[in-house]
Design a protein around this nucleic acid. Structure first.
Length: 226
DNA sequence: CCCTGATTCGC
DNA sequence: GCGAATCAGG
């Protein structure tokens, strides 16, 4: 496997989203955890709560009188220009408002202006924001018969990137780059980029960290669903 | 042991 | 540039 633009972009997203290198690795497939880390560093997006970093253990109380008076006689290595690696001194508190997925599975109430943002995961692992900023999410659109709106027989079979427009569901089916990768193609839930069904998948409360591989691995996770 | 990310270094 | 091997903390 090679690092295509697409894969690099996915790596970036997931890395910044806080997924572990391992998760990213088998999400992308074909690469090892080390490969992901290595690539991440080469891309310049390093530094994240890593277990091993600053070894600046404060001298133990016993050795408070740091026995390092710089013995004049020896001094093997004078003073290697110890690069003052900042190592992101600020631990980046990562503001995690007590947003609770209380009504899981339910429709998200319209977020109040000062209420914690509802963040959800969209296809491809993008962090997206509830559309509720402008309008109530999932307005109970009247059950319109979409018989006439049914997409042409062609895209009913396979909706490609070129077939996308703002009236059809953009939910990805399968894995990008693979021959039969396509998009849902259903008529969208008015005001959303996805059909009703996929809106339900796209707009969920963020799952709490630590939930390894939630059973319904949405977009680019599992085998393939259709 | 497991996990994590960081770093090194031969390719 | 890539990633396995290695390191080192949790």
């Amino acid at each position: 496997m090679s690092w295509t633009d697409e894969r690099i972009e996915q790596l970036r997203n997931m890395w910044e989203k806080g997924l572990t290198a391992s998760q990213i690795a088998d999400e992308l497939g074909g690469v090892s955890r080390n490969a992901v880390i290595g690539k991440a560093h080469r891309l310049g997006l390093k530094s994240r709560p890593s277990p091993v970093k600053a070894t600046d253990k404060v001298a133990k109380p016993v050795k408070a009188a740091a026995p390092k008076p710089a013995s004049p006689a020896v001094a093997p290595r004078p003073a290697a220009p110890v690069a003052p690696r900042p190592v992101t001194a600020a631990p980046r508190p990562e503001p995690k408002p007590p947003v609770q997925a209380s009504d899981e599975g339910g429709v998200q109430a319209a977020p109040k202006p000062d209420a914690p943002r509802i963040v959800s995961i969209g296809p491809g692992g993008f962090i997206r924001q509830g559309p509720g900023d402008q309008q109530a999410p999932i307005p109970p659109a009247p059950p319109r018969r979409l018989v006439p709106a049914k997409p042409s027989p062609e895209i009913a079979d396979k909706t490609t990137l070129l077939d996308l427009n703002d009236r059809i569901c953009r939910w990805p089916m399968g894995h990008p780059g693979e021959p039969d990768f396509h998009f849902c193609g259903e008529a969208v839930n008015p005001g959303f980029p996805y059909c009703v069904e996929h809106c339900g998948r796209a707009y969920q409360a963020q799952l709490p960290r630590g939930t390894r591989r939630p059973p319904p691995p949405p977009p680019f996770g599992g085998p393939r669903v259709r």
